[in-house]
Design a protein around this nucleic acid. Structure first.
Lengths: 103, 103
DNA sequence: TCAACTGTTTAGTATATACTAAACAGATGT
DNA sequence: ACATCTGTTTAGTATATACTAAACAGTTGA
């Protein structure tokens, strides 16, 4: 079985990193969708946002900047927003941003 | 008298623009300082953040992305955070970010 | 075994960004 | 008039970013 892609230690993530990660419309849309679903999601639901190779790099960006974790199972990858951890490290940040995202 | 530099219509500014503008540590620091001062500030108080030409470009970035207005008077430029307008267009965004900025 | 499927990674490109030094522009004091 | 001051603009550079196409890697079903 392929291993899960490594998550980053959120204590090593800066606020500006988070803001930069969320300053791209596709990534903000992915994060918003995960926030609203409020559960682990297969990548499949994001396919309408772009081509797979491009999306995969956005997943990588979000993962390396502490926003999501990625679990692999079988053929699929599943994304989880690290909401509780993010809220702990950056209180009120995520909701404050997502609430203002009307694309 | 030199004219003030033109401010942008906030209705034409997107959330991702704002996030990108604030994703740079120098710009976030400028905005935070303006937020805490809660009044118009001379550029002079930011001189410790970098060289003047670099800072001037950050002011320009903040102005063109709707975060500040710039008034010129005599030899000086004065920056104002467009807080009320920002709060109206992006409720709770600014405070949610600045509260998490511990540099 | 092998073809199909879901994503990841690599290589390449075009554009954007942050920074510096130097030139510039208006305001001020002598 | 002139030198000085604050900040802006320009030109140049080095790095980062977003995207695409193509190659690749595991997993699954025929």
């Amino acid at each position: 079985m392929k291993e899960n892609l490594p998550s980053i230690n959120l204590n090593k993530v800066t606020l500006t990193q988070i803001l930069k990660a969320l300053s791209d419309p596709i990534r903000l849309e992915i994060v918003t969708k995960l926030f609203k679903e409020n559960k682990e999601c297969s990548c499949a639901i994001f396919n309408d946002l772009g081509k797979k190779s491009n999306l995969s790099q956005h997943y990588r960006n979000l993962r390396l900047n502490g926003l999501i974790s990625v679990r692999r199972s079988g053929i699929h990858s599943y994304l989880t927003l690290r909401q509780a951890e993010l809220d702990h490290r950056f209180p009120n940040l995520l909701k404050g941003i997502i609430d203002n995202w009307h694309h």
